[in-house]
Design a protein around this nucleic acid. Structure first.
Lengths: 238, 238
DNA sequence: ACTCGTAAATGACTAAACTCATTTGTGGAG
DNA sequence: CTCCACAAATGAGTTTAGTCATTTACGAGT
């Protein structure tokens, strides 16, 4: 009767892919269920699209009751975020690992973002919903996870910037994190415009490099080691 | 008699605040109804918040049937966009008009964005939903209106850039529109982060100027007219 | 004035996300 | 082993955005 009272706080959605060293049957079962839910959701989102896939179906496919589903994700949208992060973490790692470390900084950055674009191209409909959901996450836990993810992602870009500075290719009076955020902002805005159908993918591709180059220009150090010979870049204009 | 032939092209949601010179009773009634809908929606969104306000209530308050509402807006979200643009166009004009034209470019830009932030602060809950909806507009008409709006807004920034170039305060090899888009991207990303509760307003305020400055740095021409005396800026780092 | 094509209005209805009171299962304390 | 506290599961029920077949009202041509 007056039992449930408090401590409803912890969402179940904690573990995700992590392996805890020693867990009871209960914990294990919970993790298994979560995994089944994520797989069911991914499968149905891919097959039928986000709106068309009903929570009933997902629950059914995960072999749980409809109510149970909402113990794991507060909303249908949260399900999508779970699937997304599941995919995304390895992708960032890979994009960073395969970046052409000796190429100019601009090329490295472009490579990085290209990988994300390739990912979103696989399922544009889902990507649209995703971008939309990223901007308004209700659950604090989910928000914290997103925050961490972005920190991680932007951190990788900052690493590229620092490397370029260490190699004397970029002015050292530029704060790497701020620059990384700006570069990401430029990319992200174009991504949003593409997925919101404000611009086409073609337009995206034509603009991304030019836009990033504009943020980097002025900070790049030319071939000559001393950085004293500065000839005006005089790039082509729009 | 056969004068007004067929001009049937206009979608219902067209006129918004515009006044057409000669319109029949029908047209006028339609416009009135649209206005009543927008007012009813604004009032209820403000009072009860976006989710809590039901379409039934809005229809009732606008004194129309529930079905009629959806002849004017395809979704509840579209209602919000209508209210938003109603507010926003005058705001952009005003922000541009009051920009401190003699101040450094950075200050002008910051002034511009500050006005938007002030607007969103009035009703943060609504602003959140808004930002979310801007990224995924289903109706092509609505999307086109948004596109126009952004073009207008970014165009104003580009104007500021061009003015600075004309005054010899900014390098002329910088494409104004691309720069304007980049500056807006930096602002917009921070706005999203604020409204998505990834950062606080305080953090926004601390970062916006620094981030914009980083995009402009390198293109600014120093006091000395010739632009030949270049001392390294050596600003504080993060 | 009459008529007809069609724009606009309408509200009962449907579908589906989410809730919640209740039941079931688990692990640990005695 | 037994029992209990509580975590987790459950599905019938509620709520509300959005639909659609039907009706109403306008206005252009005669």
């Amino acid at each position: 009767m007056a039992t449930i009272a408090k401590e409803r706080r912890k969402t179940a959605v904690e573990a995700e892919t992590l392996e805890a060293p020693s867990e009871g049957r209960r914990e294990r079962k919970k993790r298994r269920t979560l995994q089944r839910i994520i797989r069911a959701a991914r499968s149905l989102f891919e097959r039928k699209g986000f709106e068309a896939a009903t929570t009933q179906e997902i629950a059914e496919r995960a072999d749980i009751g409809t109510g149970t589903l909402f113990n794991y994700a507060k909303t249908k949208e949260e399900l999508l975020l779970m699937v997304f992060r599941d995919d995304m973490m390895p992708l960032v790692e890979s994009a960073f690992a395969t970046a052409p470390k000796q190429a100019p900084l601009l090329d490295q950055i472009v490579h990085y973002f290209d990988r994300f674009i390739a990912y979103h191209r696989r399922d544009i409909k889902i990507a649209k919903v995703l971008i939309r959901e990223l901007s308004s996450v209700h659950s604090p836990e989910q928000r914290e996870k997103n925050r961490e993810f972005v920190r991680f992602l932007v951190g990788k870009i900052a690493d590229l910037v620092r490397a370029a500075q260490a190699q004397g290719k970029l002015r050292t009076d530029v704060p790497p994190l701020t620059l990384a955020h700006n570069l990401f902002a430029v990319y992200y805005r174009l991504l949003e415009n593409w997925l919101g159908e404000y611009i086409t993918l073609d337009q995206y591709e034509r603009r991304i490099r030019q836009a990033l180059e504009l943020q980097l220009r002025g900070f790049l150090i030319e071939e000559s080691e001393t950085a004293l010979s500065r000839k005006a870049p005089a790039r082509r204009r729009r």
